[in-house]
Each structure stands twice: as C-alpha cells, then as structure tokens.
Design a protein around this nucleic acid. Structure first.
Lengths: 152, 152
DNA sequence: GGTTCAGGTCGATCGCGTCCACGGACTGTA
DNA sequence: TACAGTCCGTGGACGCGATCGACCTGAACC
C-alpha cells in the first residue's frame, strides 16, 4: 500500500467506472500494472465493492430515518443483529458505545412504511425500545474524504 | 423509468464496473441501447456517481462517530451547513426533525482527531451544542436494498 | 394512410482489457 | 563481488467491448 495505491483508491472513489487505461495515465503506470494493483486491492479487501450511487427518491425511497435501538439487558446481541440483517430497509447498522446499542439508518417509501418498520423493530426479540429521528433532507452522504496517511 | 431501467440500476448498485455488454446480456437488450439508457439515467440525476467502497481502516480512518448538532436559536442554517461542508471528515450530513438540527457521520483516524473535530464543531458559529456517539463497529453500511416500485 | 418520433438492432471501427514473455532493481547468501 | 530469487514493472498481441452511424419498427397524432 504505497502512494500509487492511495492514488488509485482516491480515483476510484471519485469514479468507479474509470478504465484501467485512464487510471494508468493518471498515476503514470502502464495499464497491466494498474490492473494488477487494483486486483490486489480488491482481493485484500481494501476495495470492498463498486457501487452506483442512486438518488433514493427516484426509486421510491423518499423517507430516511435514523433509529436508535436499546437492547434488553438479557438480549443476545448476535441474534438481534441477524434480525436486523434480514430487514432490507436497514441500509446501515452501527454498534454504538453508550446506552443505545445500535444505530440504524433506514430508508422507506412512505411514513406509513416507516411506522410499520418501527413496529417491527420494537417487536424484535431482544429490543427493549427504539428512538427514531426522521431526516428531513440529506445534505450529502458518503462524501469521500481525501485519503491521508495509511495506518502504521 | 421502466422495469429495465430499474433492473440496470439494481445491477449497477451491485457492481458499478459491469461492462455495457454484460449489462446488455443481463437485461436482454443490445449494448448501444443499454449505453443510451444508462447515459440518460446519469444525466437525469438518477445515477449520481459511481464509487469504490473502501474499507475505512485500511486508509487510516478507524474511528467512526455520529454527532448530533443543536443549533443556536438565532443561527443561520445555511451558514452552519457551509461550515460543515468545509470539514472533510464529515462524510454524511442529514437535516433532522427534532431538537437536534443535524446529524453528522464523521470518520477520523484517532480518538484525538475526533476530539479536535468536536471542539471545532462546538466553536462553529451557530452551533449551540453537540452530542457525540462513537461507533464501536460498523456492521454494514450503504447496503443496497432491492428496488421496489418507482414513485407515481 | 402518412408523418414523426422514440427507442431499438446491426455493422464497423477503434481503443481497452488482459495474457504472456521479458527486464531491471533489490535482497539475502556465499 | 557475484549470483539467484523475487517483486514489480513494461511492451506486444489479440480478442472483446465501447461507441458511432445508418437503418428499422411500432405507437401516437394529424
């Protein structure tokens, strides 16, 4: 993981559909060299996926909510997690420090669907209570920050 | 925006580097037809970007925090927003319903950097107070959910 | 019925992806 | 210093994909 790798990562974060030839021009290597480097970044797990970023409203997901979960004291965290994983509306799931064990980001089409989701979460075994905040608008999301120094 | 467009969106959400030829095979059209459809999805803003998803730890961003912001009552929300936009560590920014005006997702390298970020946020004009939660682990993030029915 | 238009296919061309053989720098060993 | 092995790159070759233009088809509208 050297400066060229970081450069490639930054380029692909900005536009995942750049051709290897174009990447090669930008970093000053040949296309096969870039191909091999990117392949290694993928297989080592540094690059997890390439995703198109879609405007949620256009695919009928106009409501964004952030939901904090408080677990029952006796809950099995892994079981709760698996229940959450089965709910497709939950786009992100963070395990948090503090009273609330989880923070979920969910997207649904309507407030009615959000209500159904919250009911479902509250009924999930191991969940003691939930606290939901609705995002009125998403100012930005997953903005890539310039890559700094890799860890020692 | 018909079923084929939704199909293309779903495919590109799963792997943004699929070739047009491959997309064409999957949706049962010719490559030029797919090329034109995807081009229209891009220029109409449905597809916002193509991004490589990077494991944050590998680029030295091991600490994830979610920060709620309470604005001063006299604050100019747009000004506050612009201040936030200038801070690269803030990956996502949601404008929320409720007492806390904003929810920010930030990623930094160390707890020390997080401290510096929180201090900076608290000093930002228009910010009354902050409340920070630290993500001990990210279970998953930006998982694409199956596309449903587009809005009427 | 004729016109127009959107949106598709087909064919051709050019550049890219990808495989392979080769070469230089670096390292550890005698 | 000489040598061998390894890593990481380059250049060439070849088949496939991207992309353009010409043409086709069906639906909507006069």
């Amino acid at each position: 993981m050297d400066a060229i790798d970081l450069n490639l990562i930054e380029l692909l974060r900005g536009n995942a559909r750049l051709s290897y030839a174009e990447l090669a021009r930008q970093v000053g290597l040949s296309a096969p060299a870039v191909h091999e480097r990117v392949g290694k970044l993928e297989s080592s797990g540094v690059i997890r996926a390439y995703r198109a970023e879609i405007e949620p409203e256009s695919i009928g997901l106009g409501v964004t909510a952030l939901i904090e979960i408080i677990e029952e004291s006796a809950a099995d965290t892994d079981d709760v997690l698996e229940s959450f994983r089965a709910i497709p509306e939950i786009e992100s799931c963070y395990f948090m420090a503090g009273v609330e064990s989880f923070l979920l980001k969910a997207r649904v089409g309507t407030i009615g669907e959000l209500e159904a989701l919250i009911v479902r979460l509250n009924r999930t075994p191991g969940v003691a209570s939930t606290r939901t905040g609705i995002a009125l608008s998403t100012k930005w999301e997953n903005r890539p920050q310039p890559v700094g120094t890799p860890p020692a």
